[in-house]
Design a protein around this nucleic acid. Structure first.
Lengths: 413, 413
DNA sequence: CAGTATTTTTTCGAGGCTCGAAAAAATAGA
DNA sequence: TCTATTTTTTCGAGCCTCGAAAAAATACTG
């Protein structure tokens, strides 16, 4: 069951804590770290001295921060960019993108590629991914010792161990153990992440004030996805990446969903559903494979111009999202929401019906106080999330090795 | 943010771990504890020697376990029943029940009382609760030094800090800070728990094989409640006890719910809803205040005898529960379910429609493999859960004091 | 410009904790 | 009674964190 704390875990944990304090705060002084971690100055001094000696941290040179106070000036600690590097791979519909990130989080190389994911056979899809990674790894211009970690994000369902893609809308292939494949190919630890979870991770780094312990990132794209952070931790299902918000049931037996079932939220709010309703094709019409972002933007323009089927389509999307969020709020209580993706650009069309629907649900008491942010472009977010995730792995597992995942697992009681 | 690990936390954590190992395992030997916690024999020896010296543990006398092996026989460690005692209070519709539990988990005194919670004014409701607790505390027959903790469970919504009842179906009163009231009155630390959460806690202690890391306890009673354990921890909302499964939306704009909204799962599956449908009163009919368990059982008998409105009412309940569970499973993946409460006794009438509905949802792939247990009597479960919760508090906060709630809060990344 | 005040960082010894190895204790079999 | 075996305790070694004091580095002051 639960496992005791060994004596050497102590140092390792506190090492990890110092590293993470530096990553979060930018250039904190030893004193600041002592304050935020609650550890003594002596401990912080010892640990940071170790970390500097190992080339993980470095003292930020020069008094760029002109100290106005008396006394010995604080010397900031920074992550040493050369301590390590990680690689991110984002696989989305017809698009593959990789980036190499240094230890301090800066992009030092990238490559992008269009490909036809929907029709590509399994081997070719895997081959494209490994090939693009190989090109980055073998690039002579890149003077990076070695890549410490690869994080790969994909639209769709991944398993809860972050090893495999189970199902994805961007390809008919299923069960591809990308993490294992990349590890076997390059001998670099890799993980397979869900795109919406990475969005949530990135939001938390971008705006820790708004997105702290509990929040929701919803991807409004061809499909509907969700990344959920609860009590400061990414929420995943018990077996899969979970959080399949788009496939909560909005209307039992209702509109035909891309997943083959009926009445899912996505079957009203996904791009294909908005498109279908705007064109008055009927709820049983087979979902189209793809609607371009340009077409969706044009649709939104028409919806804003005049009341008609386009506007009604967005209204229905808002209603489905509202009732879905209402059900979600019944379970987790209301929390800040970020709407991401092309249809987040049409949130003005969605919001009224959404709020009206939420008001009819258990979360409705606070309907007015729930705030929505919008971010029409999901790709940068996903990339950032992957980078932070990979870097955090390096922080914790490579530079503070040996920590058990969960220390003393608390009993339920 | 996150807080470092101090040196003395180490001992405290490991103390708590030993206590919890003993509580879980019954009468484990030092060697067994060393094996399950991963700590060394020397450490376990030192800690258990301390704990015995403090009267928290005791060596279980006499070789009741006739050792068949060679070698020095193991000596089992047990919780010392007299180390402490806790008090549980369960407040449900028209019924108040308290029990005093010794440190080993045995009930050593109890008292129950009928009262009219629905019409009782606020002060009187609070007064009844404090009075019954006072009677138990002042009972001269009870030779318990002192009560170390009170856990009070109520049907309804509590706040996430376990201090107050926010709303309850058993009384028109709202926002009663029972935990604070009891603490002020008796000077004993108290918590206010949600009844369904306590059911989940109890199930985990009763059958740790089936109910381990991820499971769902659903209360099928006048209302519909849920206790949810995910990744080994009780799941609560961000502000409230959360998990308001009964108020997820089944059919937007549908049947009238007791909460005043429309289309909630409860508005189809709560006793009042089954009753309303069985009597063909229409979905807009005002929910009745209470249906007796006897009436519900009679209803189930009629539903089994012949196809008619009674059977149809249970079918609709099953459908609502099935779609609700389907949406829940979309978020958390399928997990074992325990159906608790009087209508769990009619689960044979509910199950077919429930499974049919689940099969139409995202959780549906595994529809067949999802297993349901039934337990018609919720009260003993709630009481047990309260007892275990209070005892665990004593284990962790009194006998291993000073532990920070969450050690190194892991970053999302 | 030297001296003082102030703040940050390092150093050093004390105290605690866990660990491994060895010793002690307690039993079954020979 | 002696030996093998298993459990439990004892003891010294090695770390780790902490507090206090020292050292370092700067701004102020007259």
């Amino acid at each position: 069951m639960s496992v005791g704390i060994r004596h050497d875990d102590l140092r390792r944990r506190n090492r990890a804590m110092v590293i993470s304090a530096v990553r979060r705060a930018g250039q904190p002084s030893r004193t600041e770290i002592a304050a935020t971690t609650g550890l003594s100055h002596s401990t912080i001094s010892a640990i940071s001295s170790d970390l500097i000696g190992e080339g993980i941290l470095s003292e930020s040179k020069a008094g760029e921060a002109v100290s106005l106070k008396r006394g010995r000036p604080q010397v900031g600690l920074a992550l040493n960019p050369e301590a390590a590097a990680v690689l991110t791979v984002v696989l989305s519909l017809n698009f593959l993108s990789v980036a190499v990130i240094d230890y301090a989080g800066q992009v030092i190389a990238e490559e992008q590629r269009r490909l036809d994911t929907l029709t590509m056979p399994r081997d070719e899809l895997i081959g494209e991914c490994t090939a693009i990674v190989r090109r980055r790894l073998e690039d002579p211009d890149l003077d990076v010792q070695s890549i410490a970690r690869i994080a790969l994000a994909i639209q769709g369902i991944t398993d809860s161990h972050a090893r495999a893609m189970l199902w994805s809308p961007i390809t008919p292939q299923t069960n591809i153990a990308f993490a294992d494949i990349l590890e076997a190919e390059f001998g670099i630890p890799a993980t397979m992440e869900n795109d919406c979870n990475m969005m949530a991770v990135a939001l938390r780094w971008r705006d820790p004030n708004r997105y702290r312990d509990d929040f929701i990132a919803i991807l409004l794209s061809h499909g509907i996805g969700m990344g959920l952070v609860l009590k400061g931790e990414l929420f995943t299902g018990t077996h899969s990446s979970g959080g399949e918000f788009g496939h909560m049931i909005h209307r039992p037996g209702g509109a035909l969903c891309r997943c083959g079932r009926r009445g899912c939220v996505e079957a009203y709010a996904g791009n294909y559903a908005i498109w279908r309703n705007a064109r008055q094709m009927g709820e049983d019409a087979e979902p189209v494979a793809d609607v371009s972002d340009a077409d969706m933007r044009a649709l939104a323009v028409r919806a804003r111009e005049a009341d008609g089927p386009e506007r009604e389509a967005y209204r229905k999307a808002g209603e489905a999202l509202g009732f879905g969020l209402g059900s979600l709020f019944a379970l987790i209580d209301p929390a800040p929401v970020a709407m991401v993706g092309v249809s987040a650009g049409a949130f003005d069309l969605i919001e009224p019906a959404l709020r009206e629907a939420i008001a009819q649900t258990a979360g409705g008491q606070h309907s007015g106080s729930i705030s929505f942010d919008t971010e029409p472009n999901e790709l940068p977010l996903i990339r950032e999330g992957c980078a932070m995730r990979a870097l955090s792995f390096v922080d914790q597992e490579i530079f503070a090795p040996g920590i058990q995942a969960k220390p003393g697992k608390k009993d339920v009681a």
